[in-house]
């Protein structure tokens, strides 16, 4: 399988008043063509920062170290690949559109830029086709953004990204404002897209659906990826303590219990570079976990925990 995206020791740190806030800490990951990956984790664990890092539009108070390689060459100039090769769907649909321009013109922009030889009718046809896929009517194009609800806008965003036929889709919480029917539809469409040779990276809170639709799952905590496995395996045998805690919270697992367990506490802000990030909340922690150095692992599936450091079969 072809490797399409590779994170090499990728970290992002924001300069704040209290010091350097490490949002993403030394991620090493290889993503291949045709993957449908879900990245799950709590709020504040750095998922959106990772998306910003992939896009290349890094804010000025952020320091980036390490590399992201796309097609074996490192990403330097965001304008060259954004939209056509890597398409990113951002999180908030409410403010995602320019309030003074009609939707038609805004969704056309991407098509005009990347497929300049399409005529107006072809563009309209393509837009209508993709909007219909997401259960949207064509006359939504004639409206202004403030006349539409959040769910509709989110589906328009997803549709306009898919229209450009990118090789990688990175979707940051694409199902946040959608009802269940649409959630299933969107994730299914992503699955079909992935099966036709493209890559989909899904970032979500919705753990159950992530396991249901994605082929591989990565669990992120405090800027690090703590476990990366195929979804079926991870659901049956979670290894990292955090993954175990997450999965044990799902209603599907706790079918007969009255109260669902929760993972205590929240993700802390991180100012230090080494040591296991889950140290303070881990039920299985040991003395050495506090100073655990994570080695770069390019194996396809890994668990980043001191307890499993010695395992040779990974």
């Amino acid at each position: 399988m072809e490797e399409i995206l590779k994170f090499k020791n990728f970290s992002m740190a924001y300069n704040t008043n209290k010091g350097k806030l490490i949002a993403v800490n030394k991620i090493n990951l290889s993503i291949f063509k045709g993957d449908y990956i879900a990245i799950i984790g709590e709020s504040g664990c750095g998922k959106s920062s990772l998306v910003t890092g992939i896009s290349g539009l890094i804010p000025k108070n952020c320091e980036v170290s390490g590399e992201i390689e796309y097609n074996k060459s490192s990403i330097k100039n965001p304008d060259k690949f954004l939209g056509k090769d890597i398409s990113i769907i951002m999180q908030e649909p409410m403010n995602a559109f320019n309030p003074t321009i009609k939707i038609l013109k805004q969704t056309e922009e991407g098509l005009k830029k990347h497929y300049p030889f399409m005529t107006k009718e072809e563009r309209l046809k393509r837009m209508a086709f993709f909007l219909n896929k997401f259960y949207l009517e064509g006359d939504v194009l004639r409206k202004y953004p403030f006349q539409l609800s959040g769910g509709i806008k989110q589906r328009i965003l997803i549709a306009s990204s898919m229209m450009l036929n990118p090789k990688i889709i990175v979707a940051d919480e694409p199902t946040a404002s959608l009802d269940l029917d649409n959630v299933k539809n969107v994730l299914n469409i992503f699955k079909i897209y992935a099966e036709s040779g493209n890559t989909v990276i899904l970032i979500t809170h919705d753990i159950l659906n992530a396991f249901k639709f994605a082929s591989k799952v990565a669990v992120m905590y405090a800027g690090e990826i703590v476990e990366y496995k195929p979804s079926g395996e991870m659901f049956k045998n979670p290894e990292h303590p955090y993954t175990k805690a997450l999965i044990s919270c799902l209603p599907a697992v706790n079918k007969n219990k009255k109260f669902l367990p929760v993972v205590d506490g929240t993700v802390e802000e991180r100012y230090f570079e080494s040591g296991c990030p889950f140290y303070n909340r881990c039920p299985l922690k040991k003395e050495e976990c506090g100073s655990y150095f994570k080695e770069p692992l390019f194996n396809e599936y890994f668990v980043s925990c001191y307890l499993y450091k010695q395992r040779k079969d990974l």
């Binding site: 896009s55 539009l57 965001p78 304008d79 954004l82 939209g83 056509k84 398409s87 990113i88 951002m90 908030e92 403010n95 995602a96 559109f97 320019n98 309030p99 003074t100 321009i101 922009e109 991407g110 830029k113 990347h114 965003l157 306009s160 450009l164």
Partner: peptide
């Protein structure tokens, strides 16, 4: 600093184009 500027850039528009088409009008 608004989100739609970021979205326009994510669609592939260059810095100059986003300013011309979105920022100036607003």
């Amino acid at each position: 600093k608004e989100r739609y500027i970021l979205n326009a850039r994510l669609k592939g528009l260059s810095y100059k184009e986003t300013i011309k088409k979105h920022a100036l009008k607003n």
